[in-house]
Amino acid sequence: MPVHHAIWRIGENPQPLTISKLASEQLLEKMILNDPTILSDQWMIIGHQEYTFDKGRIDLLAIA
């Protein structure tokens, strides 16, 4: 059975926020780079689009 969750705008008349999509993954990365607390206030971003030893790539690299 699926579970439905919502994020609500609180106030006198609470309303669920509408579902939306980001235009691109790059936009999400820029948002996180501008404000890493979107993910965690314990993380510090130390790399962006970093290449790995096995010729892969990491979008964002952080330490806690």
Rank of each mutant, 00 (worst) to 15 (best):
47 G>Y: 00
29 E>T: 04
51 Y>Q: 15
44 M>P: 02
49 Q>N: 08
57 R>T: 05
2 P>C: 06
32 I>H: 00
60 L>Y: 00
3 V>D: 15
59 D>S: 00
60 L>V: 04
20 S>W: 07
27 L>S: 14
56 G>W: 00
46 I>Q: 01
50 E>K: 09
25 E>F: 04
18 T>Y: 14
54 D>H: 06
48 H>Y: 11
49 Q>R: 13
11 G>H: 04
47 G>N: 02
64 A>H: 15
6 A>R: 13
33 L>C: 05
36 P>T: 01
12 E>D: 14
55 K>N: 13
11 G>K: 03
22 L>Q: 05
37 T>F: 05
31 M>E: 11
56 G>P: 03
49 Q>C: 07
25 E>A: 10
27 L>R: 12
19 I>N: 09
26 Q>V: 14
46 I>F: 04
23 A>F: 09
58 I>G: 03
56 G>L: 02
18 T>P: 14
41 D>A: 08
64 A>I: 12
34 N>C: 12
43 W>E: 05
40 S>M: 04
24 S>D: 03
13 N>Y: 13
1 M>K: 10
42 Q>A: 15
35 D>P: 03
1 M>S: 09
35 D>N: 09
21 K>P: 04
24 S>C: 00
30 K>R: 12
30 K>F: 08
25 E>N: 05
15 Q>Y: 07
20 S>Y: 08
44 M>A: 14
57 R>H: 04
64 A>G: 14
28 L>G: 04
8 W>I: 13
